[in-house]
Design a protein around this nucleic acid. Structure first.
Lengths: 237, 237
DNA sequence: TTAAAATGATAGTAATACTACCTCATAAAA
DNA sequence: TTTTATGAGGTAGTATTACTATCATTTTAA
């Protein structure tokens, strides 16, 4: 299995910089390598978070970063590609975090608990990436993430490996599930259920509370409890 | 609890006609009451199924039904409202089917099994509705359904009760779960998990098979098995 | 030094989303 | 019978969005 997304940890003057290597098919020109490109990332996150993906346009983005529409088209084919880029970035970042936090943990049940915590708890911007606000990006993934693959061209995009970071995270979780119980028959489907439900229950809790059991409190820890219950009941030997 | 969506079963010359009463806020003019309105429903289902929701426009719709854009705006505020209408219709129809099939079933575990079957199995157009192809509509709900609520105006739409059919189905399922095990703590979240995963695992199975455990066979019965396992493990006393 | 490539701004086009206004048919009121 | 109201649907727009072609300038590479 070849890996297109790897991580770089650079130590520069006592600061830790995390660089995520993105699939080249995601963009026309790599936005991480120029000032304008980084501004595109930084401000598309802000704009999509603020007004939603439907209201997000290259014109508005160009205005806030002091550039032009054509300038942005040089980096991304269209706004949907930016959404795929951002979600792919998020899943790569999350996989890194998971790997990092599960380092030296041997008990698969503790691994799963930590994992669910990382998936369902609110994210705090970690400052190790300069132009990506992970907290806002997490909100975007919750509210817009599934639009990245719910399209008519999902299969072509998949052939270009645009969803590899999501699949890698899914594989990682499935492996831990099998570690806990090698006889469990649906590790991948359970993995995507955890990922998707961590996001969706959070969205429902805030916007359609009647669809959840944690409407009043709006405490994300309750989502964690729900998921732990769901997972451990299912994979119990 | 007031009910905005109820069902009418009419017997006309030996045929059974199912009429679903829709929330008036969903449309500008009730599309069920005119020939043009019914064509809008029938052909928006076909067009969205064929080209996806993003590529669906009022102009294209007007062309295929031999009308004009302005004519369609008389029935629906915008294309997003059509999507909400279609999904609301689908959830009402499904709730009716569930109620119908669970009639006279007393064992909650059989109820849950039948329910999962109805949610996850492919739908066949049932001919009791003349201008709605339920099979195509099911495909639309799988691929586009979540876009109905994943918006910035979800809370206002929710205040107008546009998602009531979805919530009603959720309540119905939650009630059966509690019937099976009154001590279960997350009946609503589990209900939405069943609904959403029935659709999403089906989508992944066909388009992103690496995210599931039923990639090769593409047999929806495997989704049913996964969901049954997930549900019964969770609510087991 | 000079050609090629990259960068970015200007100025368009085509399609989309939406609106204002017009016409016609029907049907109730005078 | 005539008048007026009502709602059906159509015509012809505008503003915005998505995207492209072209030009000018800077950077880089031979």
């Amino acid at each position: 299995m070849t890996t297109l997304c790897v991580y770089d940890l650079e130590i520069r003057s006592m600061e830790l910089h995390l660089q995520i290597k993105m699939n080249e098919k995601l963009f026309v020109r790599n936005p991480e390598q120029t000032e304008l490109g980084r501004k595109i990332i930084e401000f598309s996150i802000r704009l999509i978070h603020e007004n939603g993906f439907e209201a997000f346009t290259f014109k508005k983005l160009a205005e806030v970063i002091g550039s032009t529409e054509a300038g942005i088209y040089r980096y991304f084919e269209n706004k949907h590609r930016i959404l795929i880029y951002l979600t792919a970035w998020y899943w790569s970042w999350l996989e890194f975090r998971v790997t990092f936090h599960l380092n030296n943990v041997s008990d698969p049940s503790i691994k799963l608990k930590k994992l669910i915590q990382l998936l369902a708890a609110n994210v705090v911007d970690d400052d190790s990436t300069l132009y990506v606000d992970e907290s806002l990006l997490h909100q975007i993934v919750i509210a817009e993430g599934s639009k990245a693959y719910l399209t008519k061209h999902v299969s072509e995009d998949n052939k270009d490996r645009l969803f590899k970071p999501y699949k890698d995270l899914c594989s990682l979780i499935a492996a831990i599930i099998l570690e806990y119980n090698p006889a469990y028959t649906h590790p991948r489907s359970l993995a995507t259920t955890i990922i998707e439900m961590a996001n969706l229950q959070m969205f429902f809790m805030h916007h359609l509370p009647a669809l959840t059991d944690f409407g009043q409190s709006k405490d994300e820890q309750l989502v964690v409890e729900f998921l732990e219950d769901l997972v451990f009941c299912s994979i119990r030997k």
